[in-house]
Amino acid sequence: MKQEVLKHFDVPWLPLTALVLFVVCFAAYTYWTYRKANRPHFESVSRIPLEDPSIKTNDLQGKIS
């Protein structure tokens, strides 16, 4: 039923815009991601979860923010 109604939807530029937008963005983010120059950076960012900040104290003596 939804399809039946949408059949009458006669604004072809809308899905076309979406398509163009998507193609352009997809190309852009794929290019950025796979650019050679960015590689070392991604490698270092991927380590963020594994890096804990250094421990100062195990008690509440230190200044807390």
């Binding site: 949408l6 059949k7 939807f9 899905p15 076309l16």
Partner: peptide, 16 residues
């Protein structure tokens, strides 16, 4: 972007 695409995808068989 699936978000953008999932909708118009339903219009595939019509006026495009």
């Amino acid at each position: 972007f699936i978000y953008i695409w999932a909708g118009p995808h339903h219009l595939l068989y019509t006026t495009l």
